[in-house]
Amino acid sequence: MNEIVLEAASLEKSFGGRGLLPWGKGKRSLQAVRGVDLQVRKGETLGIVGESGCGKSTLARMLVGLSEPTGGRVALSGRDVAEMRRNARSELRRKVQFVFQDPLSSLNPRKTVRQILEAPLDNLLRMPRDRRRERVAELMQLVNLRPEFVDRHPHEFSGGQSQRIGIARALAAEPKVMVLDEPVSALDVSVQAQILNLLGDLKQRLGLTYVFISHDLAVVEHLCDTVAVMYLGNVVEHAPAEEIFRSPRHPYTHALLQSVPTLGRRSDPDALSEGELPNPAAPPPGCAFAPRCPRARDDCRQARPPLERMADGHLAACYYPLAREAGKDASQA
């Protein structure tokens, strides 16, 4: 079994909770991530999916040390990320890198591509100048960009080319893990396919491990080995990708799949319209999905269901999960 390279344990993140003035009335905090447990194994691509506002991007930023958890911990190859963030920041950045959703806004408009790619080579790897020039050429080749592009600025590129530069910048640090936050959502469909194929090729060639944040289930199904489904800051289902898409056990996962159009079946736009999204600053007691769930009963509204084993490698947080056969039939209906 492959080693665990990235792990989150009881991870939490809250925002707010205090008034603007010391004597002012305190504000209610917003808990964006609520006790998440995840393990990512070497060479794996973990997809994290859910509706907008479920905490995906907040979780991603904590995984790479860009945001400090309110509670719990993140470990990278057994080492605490918060400690590395304080004492070994350069080592942390060498081991895990982040690819942003908007490629243009993540690149410094005043720098050329050469300067953008040389920065991690110089600051993190302490690479000599002659070797840096060679390595920049190698990185451009890795992401299928023409070598003469190195002296251009980001605004001279298309969205897809800009994202290739962002990927090359992440690769420059020679990381073991890459966290990608909606890396293709801002791109045209044809360009999305090119970037996804590039990511798949780089993973195989360089032995990378990915955490892939997305709301696009078709993309996740194409790229990911395992999938974690988030709802209002919680992981409500976690399983191999094939199992998630073939036989979802949590009603929320089933509703997500029903809302996506597939060949031979119309999407159901009302699959998630039952009730309103709970206020994340005041989540309902018990299961957060209960107000929208057709299977909810009284005990669902009293205590939050734990993430429990439903089958081999398949976890779901539901007191009344879909039966395996029923889930399979429903997802294909």
Rank of each mutant, 00 (worst) to 15 (best):
F98D: 00
R110G: 03
V150Q: 11
R89L: 15
D122V: 10
N123Q: 12
R93E: 09
G71E: 14
D130K: 12
G78P: 04
A137C: 04
D102K: 02
E91W: 15
K111D: 02
R133E: 15
V143D: 15
P103T: 05
L63H: 09
D102H: 06
S158L: 02
E156I: 02
R110A: 09
T70E: 13
V99W: 07
R146H: 14
R94F: 09
A88Q: 15
R146I: 01
A82Y: 04
T70W: 13
R135F: 09
R93N: 07
G71D: 15
S105F: 01
R73A: 07
F100W: 08
S105Y: 01
L139E: 06
R129T: 06
Q141T: 11
R85S: 11
R110F: 10
L66C: 08
L76Q: 08
K111A: 05
P128N: 10
M84E: 13
L104I: 03
K111Q: 10
R146C: 06
A82G: 09
L104N: 09
V143Q: 11
L92Q: 07
L124Q: 06
D151V: 01
V64R: 08
A75T: 14
F149H: 11
D130A: 14
A119Q: 14
V150W: 03
R152Y: 12
S90C: 04
G71K: 11
E91V: 13
R152E: 10
P69G: 02
G65M: 03
R89T: 05
F157N: 04
P120G: 00
D122Q: 13
S67E: 15
R94A: 00
Q115H: 01
E156T: 12
R114I: 03
D130L: 13
V113L: 11
F157W: 12
V74H: 03
E148A: 11
F98S: 09
F100L: 06
